[in-house]
Design a protein around this nucleic acid. Sequence first.
DNA 1: GACTATTAGTTAGTACGCAAAGTAATTTAC
DNA 2: GTAAATTACTTTGCGTACTAACTAATAGTC
Lengths: 152, 152
Amino acid sequence: MEPVTETTDLLALDRQVCFALSIASRSVIALYRPLLQPMGLTHPQYLAMLALWQHEPLSVKELGELLQLDPGTMSPLLKRLQALGYVNRERNSHDERSLVVTLTPAGRELRTRAEQIPPAVVARLGMDLDELQDLHTALTRLIKAAHTPDDQ
Amino acid sequence: MEPVTETTDLLALDRQVCFALSIASRSVIALYRPLLQPMGLTHPQYLAMLALWQHEPLSVKELGELLQLDPGTMSPLLKRLQALGYVNRERNSHDERSLVVTLTPAGRELRTRAEQIPPAVVARLGMDLDELQDLHTALTRLIKAAHTPDDQ
DNA sequence: GACTATTAGTTAGTACGCAAAGTAATTTAC
DNA sequence: GTAAATTACTTTGCGTACTAACTAATAGTC
């Protein structure tokens, strides 16, 4: 039996993709924090605003599908965005189960300020756009693989 | 001024690396959940066990540095691992401020079962090991870039 | 040797993220 | 047309993450 050394250890922390993913996600979100703070937004709230700027109006269900988040996560998050004055939440008159989320004028105006953020983050990272694009492609493939059912 | 179209929109959700990172991290962690559940572990707890299997004994501070987590996150997490019977927590007799975390026999035995997990996740993803290795390398570069101070 | 500063952990508060249970509206089946 | 199933959202509970305030122990300064 082969001895378990540093180089063959399947459980070595620094070889785990899941570990690198967790750290990378938290590290990048940390870069956004000081940029989002002046707007009163958290990173998940910022992602919800991105979705709304692009696709408003959206139901809670549609937003949850876009962001791949539970209704149990979306529901309080949207209440906080409403409390901040960035979104409206009202029932769909054609289907009272559904909640239509729209932007307030303040929420719509925020977009201009938000456009400063992506370039600021890229500059802060100091990485080539090509490399970031490659990473995005690789992550998209990983996400797809993770969502492909077991038996395919 | 150039019109903001789908293809030039800096704020398009599906172009954000931070968004892909969040989803990828959550999606991969979701793959671990059913595998970790029989051991009673969450994914962050699993990462802490990986660190301990590799480097035990570790202080809370050292564990937090390895996992890049706050003491405010580590402290309750380790109490839960202790409640599960996988780790001991006792003060360092040479420096009573420091808490030494060690594995219990049950915690040490768990390693054998845990060795099944990485191959199971890789199989579940159905991706080449090369591609995963490339992704790991890219993520490591991103983490390093995110941690490089602003003025360098 | 006492005063101050630093260090290691803990605790409280806020906001995700997910599971599970609950509610109300709509659809389906008969 | 009503009972049952489904759907959309809310709420509760638990475990991270992070900030900030706090406690206790140690180190540094004079």
